[in-house]
Design a protein around this nucleic acid. Structure first.
Length: 356
DNA sequence: AACCCGGGGTA
DNA sequence: TACCCAGGGTT
């Protein structure tokens, strides 16, 4: 048996029962693939069910408002995925009459769909002979063939794609792709791979040369930037002052509170003396309570967040600021750290999307 | 080519 | 802490 047959047999006997594997509907597969980008299967699963229930087809998705998509996406991260999906759903609804395309050359044109996702949808929905290369596949190929070219270099990406193409089962591309990824997820894991029970270990470079820990090779990790965020908790009766974030930074178009970012850690008192703070709140703002700094790690940013509850008689409402009933906070999409903070403060019920 | 975009699990 | 996860977009 060749490589593809070996892993396919293994896959058929050992695969996980995942909901998006029981359909050839391109919309459903698209939904699952976007949700699973840089996201663990277990983490994405509840979101997949919730999105499919709320938006069972392209037309339903296309009719949604961005606020609704972001709210449903809350907690999953990489929120541009949700915004791009809405854009793509609307385009498909118009130009493809609500029928999601299944050809690679059509899919690759759509916003939020790159080489991996186009190959995944095309092969799963229509069995088109396109090889997927995701994090799992990089690992399997690097180890099996002993490829030490970095997976995140231009040269490496090309080489790995060509290698994946060369072993693709042209008649059963969908199953082949699933098997490649499943092998990477279940056997050929990043740490402590289960080489002893791997169906292709007898031909594996890394197994034969005890090199699994050295492969794949990945170029330098990006530096982590430190940011200091000072959020202001301002209430008026049962209302709280919130704002909508703009584009061009983390959490685009989501909601948080009035914010002053500083280049270093300042005390709440020092923050209130900044000209920006005086413009917002005047010179007589009173600090009622302080919480923080709360550390929040993103992939490339280390956030240190202070929450400052103030009482000010002279708040100058800014463009995107507004008061909202605390009861209605559960309806708007917030970054996780804001959601957790406000939940702890107010314990507003129905902690949608997920309280666990 | 380099950088940006989240949140959570794991060793 | 460092690395990874069914990556893609922008500059």
């Amino acid at each position: 048996m060749n490589f593809s047959d070996e892993i396919t047999n293994w896959y058929n006997a050992n695969k996980r029962d995942l909901p998006w594997r029981n359909t050839t509907d391109a919309y459903t597969i698209w939904l699952s693939e976007i949700i699973l980008q840089q996201t663990r299967v277990e983490q994405g699963m509840p979101y997949f069910y919730r999105f499919l229930e709320r938006y069972p087809n392209v037309a339903a998705f296309a009719a949604a408002h961005e606020d609704d998509i972001l709210k449903l996406w809350q907690g999953l991260g990489y929120y541009s995925r949700g915004r791009n999906m809405l854009s793509t759903a609307r385009l498909v609804n118009e130009q493809y009459k609500g029928t999601f395309p299944t050809r690679y050359n059509e899919l690759i044109k759509l916003k939020g769909i790159g080489e991996y996702t186009a190959a995944a949808i095309a092969s799963f929905a229509a069995n088109e002979a396109k090889a997927v290369v995701d994090g799992n596949v990089y690992r399997v190929l690097a180890r099996y063939f002993g490829i030490s070219e970095p997976i995140n270099s231009t040269k490496g990406k090309k080489l790995f794609q060509e290698t994946a193409n060369s072993i693709l089962n042209m008649e059963h591309a969908g199953i082949h792709n699933q098997a490649m990824m499943e092998l990477g997820a279940i056997i050929c894991k990043p740490k402590n791979p289960a080489c002893g029970i791997c169906p292709v270990n007898t031909g594996c470079y890394a197994f034969l040369n005890n090199a699994a820990t050295q492969l794949p090779v990945k170029l330098k990790t990006v530096k982590v930037r430190e940011r200091y965020l000072n959020y202001f908790l301002i209430t008026d009766g049962d209302k709280i002052l919130m704002k909508k974030r703009g584009m061009g930074d983390i959490w685009a178009n989501m909601y948080d509170m009035p914010l002053i970012e500083t280049s270093e850690m300042l005390t709440p008192h020092e923050v209130l003396q900044l000209s920006e703070a005086i413009e917002y709140f005047g010179t007589d703002a009173e600090i009622l309570e302080v919480s923080g700094p709360v550390k929040h790690m993103l992939t490339h940013q280390r956030l240190k967040v202070n929450f400052i509850k103030i009482d000010s008689k002279k708040i100058k409402l800014q463009q995107e600021w507004f008061y909202i009933e605390v009861e209605n906070l559960k309806k708007i999409a917030m970054p996780q750290i804001i959601f957790i903070f406000l939940t702890n403060i107010f314990t507003f019920k129905n902690n949608f999307p997920f309280s666990n």
